[in-house]
Design a binder for these strands. Structure first.
Lengths: 236, 236
DNA sequence: TGTACATCAGTGAACGCGCGTTCACTGATGTAC
DNA sequence: TGTACATCAGTGAACGCGCGTTCACTGATGTAC
């Protein structure tokens, strides 16, 4: 009944559990001191283990950091998937749900947000393992953009070269749509970063109403506000 | 001839020079290891001084960090001022010059960018001294936004509360304009952050053409692309 | 102009600290017969 | 089912390291008369 490689023995279960605890405690401490100051010794101390025990589960400090980053992306990815699944079927429903989910997640866990979308940790190179979880976060809006046709542009914009071709292929939409999707994403992430990193402190009393505006404006730039937009699954 | 408080004695000149060298060497090292790992000892070692000598110029490590942040903002502020002064008089000239200057500065000094616009250093609270240099960077576009009237909106946007009133007062423009200015700023900073922090790696081959689009799109959202816009200084 | 005193930038030794990582080990868990 | 052996998660001591900060000091620079 169980899959062939699932951990079934007591030892394997215990190992998985300890591994989970290390990651959990590390994420907790990371929120207090930041990724650069994350200490294996402090983590092991808090868990009541010898510092060297960590090395049974992670090759070194960088490996633990990679696991934390992957885990954090996965966490956010699951949050947006739940939110998008609970939203309506129209593209704009997806966009509103996705942006709302990202914001709520980020505001609740500013240090997790900083870990994955803030300054890279110097001297640390993100390995391949973190790419898939990072893309998973974006997948709902990539799916949403699929098949979208550019519309409503009243602006003369410079021509795009072929630099977006691979993304356009991936989402099965014109490069124009890929460009607008990246712009909308950049606006959302930029606003969150400015807010969470303290750059709006003197300028904006409460970011709530402004945030609603940003979401609607980006939706309009994406061409999601036309009433009769066709959906990928038909329903004209 | 010299202002009353200018350092004129040999000792005062030497002090200022050493102080300058500490800041310069610190910024150099910061680009290699990041703000959290900046080491007073390493800086003093490189300058051929005793570690304790730093304390004649900065109260502690945090004071040095504050000076670095202020200095970095000032550096960027001067760069944008030069660029804006060299540009044409129309609002859109200012916007194009400002965005271009910020981007070129950031791409040339990604760690400086990360220091001031990336994740905050945990456990470090930016003191008041860094606020003025941070605002200086924005001043050209705040001036540009002054007197701007909202236009060209084809989107139904949620009403703004009074959360932008102080900023609207400051730039002497409607809250609507303040909101659009912050949105445009967020888009620019978001795009730069995604690019510099490595989040566009798989999606965008070259960011140049896409960047041009972002600038023009944000200019349009700000209402800067109407041909007959009135300028603050007349010239209708 | 010359002298006596005050200032203060920089020295170098020392403090106590926590860090990542290694290594030989122990002893419970798992496996093969 | 029982026994002998293998595995391997966790231990605890030790390594060498660099860190921020303090303190009494020295000696050149500045100042007052």
């Amino acid at each position: 009944m169980t899959p062939p490689h699932a951990p079934t023995t007591a030892r394997a279960l215990a190992t998985a559990e300890v591994c989970r605890r290390i990651v959990a405690e590390s994420r907790r401490q990371l929120a207090e001191v930041g990724p650069a100051a994350l200490s294996l010794r402090a983590v092991s101390r808090e868990l009541g283990m010898a510092p060297s025990a960590i090395y049974r589960h992670f090759a070194d400090r960088d490996a633990l950091l990679s696991a934390l980053i992957a885990q954090t992306f996965t966490d956010l990815g699951e949050a947006v998937e739940v939110a998008v699944a609970a939203a309506g079927p129209a593209r704009i429903d997806t966009w509103r749900a996705w942006t709302r989910a990202v914001r709520e997640w980020a505001v609740a866990r500013p240090f997790d947000y900083a870990l994955v979308y803030g300054s890279p940790v110097p001297g640390y190179a993100a390995p391949r393992d973190t790419v898939a979880p990072a893309v998973r976060v974006l997948q709902p809006i990539l799916d949403m953009a699929s098949g979208l046709t550019p519309s409503g542009s009243t602006v003369d914009t410079p021509p795009l070269g072929d630099s977006l071709d691979s993304m356009a292929d991936y989402i099965d939409a014109p490069a124009e749509v890929a460009a607008r999707a990246i712009e909308a994403w950049a606006t959302i992430m930029g606003f969150l970063s400015l807010y969470l990193f303290g750059h709006l402190v003197g300028a904006v009393d409460s970011s709530d109403t402004l945030w609603e505006r940003v979401v609607e404006q980006t939706a309009a730039d994406l061409g999601l506000t036309e009433p009769d937009e066709p959906l990928p699954g038909g329903r004209s």
